Amino acid sequence: MNVMPLKFAELSVQQLARFHALSFIIEQKRPEYFEKKIKSLKPSIQYGDDYVEFCKNMYKVSSNRLSNEIKDKIDKKADEYMKNYLTGHKTDVKCLCHGDYRMNNILLKLTEGEITDVIPVDYQLMYYGSPIVDFLFFIFGATDKEFRRNHFVHLKDMYHETMEQYLKYFDIDIDIVYPKKKFEMDFEDNLEFGLELNLYIAPIIFTLEDDVPDFDKVDLLEVKVKLDDRYYERLQGVVDDMIEWGKL
């Protein structure tokens, strides 16, 4: 429920950049392994009737306090939003993605009360896809409007700079792998994933602690949630961002 501390975000973004860079390194240094073991990995969520209905059900809850004007705008793009969310968006540049890169899946080390190191865990949802989506999933999963206003651009730049430096250790030029201009274009083109994430999956994250659904016992289409009030403020902040960025 909390907004992540900046230091935690910086260290986590750097780790994500190195993880993605490692995929590009394997692609160049071990191409056969890359083709067989990495490029073949599919997302755990596949676009289909069940997940479309799940998204629709979550949207009924998530949009509950949005203005009619905003709901009308979202409704006009609902099919596009759901398909984009469920297929992970499209970018020409792809790599091995974590698939669930959020605060809950990152261990942190405290030294005298200060965050000094982080270690990502829980790689069971890895897939071959867009690195931008992995990054946006992390940012929009645990930040609010104020945090993004102050640190979003900084973290985006840190991600690309970290990747550039890591690739240099292996004599790989980032301008060949993921040029800054291409990265910026992909980033701009996929910003709406932040809204989709908050409409369709964040309700699960913001479910009241005593009311978390047991997915082993409940059918996907029967999942119901009761949301913490902080969710609606968080979602409105995302909506405000999308309007400011010309995405809504």
Results as ranks from 00 to 15, higher is better:
3 V>M: 00
12 S>H: 06
13 V>Q: 04
15 Q>I: 00
17 A>E: 06
22 L>T: 13
25 I>S: 09
26 I>K: 12
31 P>C: 01
33 Y>Q: 08
34 F>W: 08
34 F>C: 08
38 I>T: 04
38 I>K: 01
44 S>I: 15
44 S>P: 03
44 S>G: 11
46 Q>C: 07
52 V>I: 15
58 M>H: 04
58 M>N: 03
59 Y>I: 00
59 Y>H: 02
60 K>A: 11
64 N>A: 12
65 R>H: 13
67 S>I: 05
70 I>G: 03
71 K>V: 14
71 K>M: 14
71 K>H: 11
72 D>M: 10
78 A>T: 12
79 D>P: 04
80 E>R: 06
81 Y>A: 05
84 N>W: 04
87 T>H: 03
94 K>S: 01
98 H>L: 07
99 G>T: 13
99 G>Y: 08
101 Y>S: 02
107 L>D: 09
111 T>W: 00
112 E>W: 01
114 E>W: 01
123 Y>Q: 08
126 M>K: 07
129 G>I: 10
130 S>C: 09
130 S>F: 04
133 V>S: 06
134 D>G: 09
135 F>Y: 14
137 F>A: 00
138 F>Y: 12
140 F>K: 10
144 D>L: 06
145 K>M: 06
147 F>H: 02
147 F>T: 00
148 R>I: 07
151 H>S: 15
151 H>C: 12
155 L>T: 14
156 K>G: 10
159 Y>Q: 09
161 E>V: 13
162 T>F: 12
163 M>V: 10
163 M>H: 11
164 E>C: 05
164 E>Y: 02
168 K>W: 00
171 D>G: 05
172 I>A: 08
173 D>I: 10
176 I>T: 15
178 Y>T: 09
179 P>C: 00
181 K>I: 15
183 F>M: 05
185 M>T: 15
187 F>L: 14
188 E>K: 14
190 N>K: 13
194 G>L: 07
194 G>F: 11
195 L>H: 10
196 E>S: 15
197 L>F: 15
199 L>A: 11
200 Y>Q: 00
206 F>H: 11
207 T>G: 05
208 L>P: 04
210 D>M: 00
212 V>S: 09
215 F>H: 03
217 K>T: 12
218 V>C: 07
223 V>H: 02
223 V>D: 02
228 D>A: 02
230 R>T: 12
235 L>E: 06
241 D>R: 06
242 M>P: 09
242 M>Q: 13
243 I>L: 09
244 E>C: 00
244 E>S: 05
247 K>I: 14
